[in-house]
């Protein structure tokens, strides 16, 4: 029977190392199956977070051969099996144990974003063309792979100054909502630090839901920040229109 070597990170807190496990390959196997095989037969204390095994819960995020991916959506036969398959926890977040990391920082960022606030007296009626954009953002499963791969968080550790791609997607889903009346553009610039993003598109590359994070969320939000803070003509236009409305 064909076999594969799984090089899985083992450890907790601030210590750990990769350990090799050999597992039998079966047709259609995904990386999460291989990890479960290790857990069932060789390392019952292996910590791994998972739930749906269908690419919808966003729990089994890890770094497979160095690339942030959902283990349940990564087929073993898509990987080079002549060498060990390296599986590591998400690098951006503190390690709890083995492949489980503490992603609670994300929930704290989420609390900074004002929720949906309908415009006063708004008619509760929406056309499909108005919600097409935000529906894309609602596909997010909060796997936090985009947060993990974003170099602003991963390498520069800007967790105090930067919200990360996931929360630009969430902010975009609110800002572009046809019935919402809140202005989150100052928050984007100051609290969520959208200016730190240098649009290298890694978040888009790793998104398992194939959300066009950079093109459809981050760049449009950056342009809204430009409207409000950096474009003198847009400011003048708003003043003129404001005067007219008054």
């Amino acid at each position: 029977m064909a076999e594969a070597t799984m090089r899985i990170f083992r450890g907790e807190g601030e210590t750990g190392k990769h350990v090799d496990y050999v597992v039998p390959l079966v047709p259609g196997m995904v990386v999460l199956d291989a990890v479960h095989s290790v857990q069932a037969h060789q390392a019952p204390d292996l910590a791994v977070r998972w739930n749906c095994k269908a690419g919808k819960c966003g729990s089994c995020s890890a770094e497979v051969n160095g690339r942030p991916r959902l283990m349940c959506k990564t087929r073993m036969d898509d990987l080079p099996l002549d060498q060990p398959v390296t599986i590591s926890p998400l690098k951006t977040f503190p390690l709890i144990k083995d492949l489980a990391t503490d992603v609670s920082w994300n929930y704290r960022v989420n609390k900074k974003i004002p929720p949906f606030q309908p415009r006063p007296g708004v008619e509760w009626k929406m056309y499909q063309r108005d919600v097409d954009r935000v529906q894309e953002f609602r596909k997010c499963i909060e796997c936090f792979l985009c947060q993990d791969v974003c170099h602003v968080l991963r390498d520069h550790g800007k967790k105090d100054d930067f919200g990360g791609p996931r929360f630009f997607v969430r902010t975009a889903s609110l800002e572009m909502h046809p019935l919402d009346g809140a202005d989150r553009v100052p928050l984007l610039k100051k609290t969520l630090g959208i200016g730190f993003c240098n649009i290298t598109k890694c978040c888009t590359e790793v998104c398992p839901e194939e959300i066009h994070i950079t093109d459809n969320a981050i760049i449009p939000l950056k342009e809204r920040v430009v409207d409000e803070f950096y474009d003198p003509l847009a400011k003048l236009w708003r003043k003129i229109r404001g005067a007219k409305t008054a």
């Binding site: 076999e3 601030e14 190392k17 050999v22 039998p24 037969h41």
Partner: peptide, 21 residues
């Protein structure tokens, strides 16, 4: 199925090895 290494407390690396490549 063979486990080629067992993570015992003695084999677990300390901080310097924790640094990822």
């Amino acid at each position: 199925m063979a486990q080629t290494a067992t993570p015992t407390p003695n084999s677990i690396a300390s901080m310097p090895e924790m640094r990822r490549p």
